[in-house]
């Protein structure tokens, strides 16, 4: 790691001021320190966010949905029994995310903003397109973990387990910078790198995520999370699927199907979700939805297996919403 200065403010405004002048935000550090050790980020100043009051923890107000502070450790979302009642998908999604230690250290905000795991990206010695180079090394290289759909110049995949689950519940985020606040849909935070957009997140310089909100209506949904890994723990998803729906008298409403690990952004196909509106999520409907979600997929040399896996996990996830 390069040498840097460090501050641990207790006031949000103090942090925002430092970020405006180019400091980098540090939350749990589980991703940032990795990037710094690999020489990919070389900040002059780190602003430790963990001392800021009010960014940690969660609350629920009836009718106003669920609010989760951006600095809440992942382990709390996983382990809190009330949250487990309110939104069981969180526990399901986080159970196989990283490890107890990483979930203890890692925060919700950091998880949303973690950089991708493409091994060419993480290798300081490979000047790939996303890092300002001229070409993507993965397209013709070692690409078993890369995207099968939705990619343009860069075929990296969205790595988070939390993101698909949150997107399936229509999560929104609040952002703050020294210029003010804004809100957006969580789904809009993610960018498939292309053209001049050599980045993965739509965060503006100096901006922080302060909280995540789940609208009240979404909390009525039943949800499930399925993840395929190439060993039985401590692996990023080869493919993951978050599915959620309100089940009313045996039929599905507000269906959401969001995939991780197959595209540069959390992958959703509105037409497939609409097609399931009012369905009983029977075998045929689920298989059909899986086809629609993955229509147009173009696997690379080594990742064709992801298509098979994705179809099966979509089917399983949807079927499990109506299982006893």
């Amino acid at each position: 790691m390069n040498a840097f200065s460090y501050a641990r403010p207790t006031a949000l405004a103090d942090a925002l001021r430092r970020l405006r002048s180019g400091a980098v935000a540090l939350a749990g550090g589980t991703d940032l320190l990795g990037l710094m050790k690999d020489g990919l980020v070389r900040p002059d100043t780190l602003v430790d966010l963990t001392g800021i009051e009010g960014l940690r923890g969660w609350s629920r107000e009836r009718g106003k949905g669920l609010r989760i502070g951006a600095l809440t450790p992942l382990i709390e979302l996983e382990g809190n029994p009330q949250l487990g009642q309110l939104m069981p998908i969180l526990r399901e999604a986080l159970r196989d995310a990283a490890t107890v230690q990483l979930r203890t250290m890692g925060t919700v905000g950091g998880n949303l903003l973690q950089r991708n795991r493409c091994w060419y990206f993480r290798d300081e010695g490979t000047p790939c397109w996303l890092k300002g180079g001229t070409r993507c090394f993965a397209v013709d290289g070692e690409n078993r973990y890369h995207a099968i759909i939705g990619a343009r110049e860069c075929v990296m995949v969205s790595p988070s387990d939390l993101v698909p689950a949150l997107v399936a519940y229509d999560a929104e985020i609040s952002l703050a910078s020294s210029r003010g606040r804004r809100h957006m849909k969580l789904a809009d935070l993610f960018v498939a790198p292309h053209g001049r957009e050599r980045r993965e997140h739509a965060l503006r310089p100096g901006e922080l995520i302060t909280e995540i909100r789940i609208p009240e209506a979404a909390l009525a949904r039943k949800g499930t999370y399925q993840k395929a890994m190439d060993r039985k723990a401590w692996s990023f998803a080869l493919v993951s699927v978050a599915a959620a729906a309100r089940i009313e008298r045996g039929v599905a409403r507000d269906v959401r199907v969001v995939l991780g690990g197959i595209a540069p952004i959390p992958w959703r196909v509105a037409a497939a979700e609409k097609g399931l509106e009012g369905s009983e999520l029977d075998e045929a409907a689920c298989a059909d939805a899986a086809e629609r979600v993955l229509a147009g997929a173009t696997p690379l040399r080594d990742n064709g297996y992801k298509l098979t896996l994705a179809r099966e996990l979509v089917r399983r996830a949807l079927r499990s919403l109506v299982a006893a």
Partner: peptide
Amino acid sequence: FVDRATGRVMNGNLENYKVPTVKD
């Protein structure tokens, strides 16, 4: 995994070189 074009080892780490965990 070695990238043929550059000769670089892509998974010379314990993240992507996958030794068994307790759950395996």
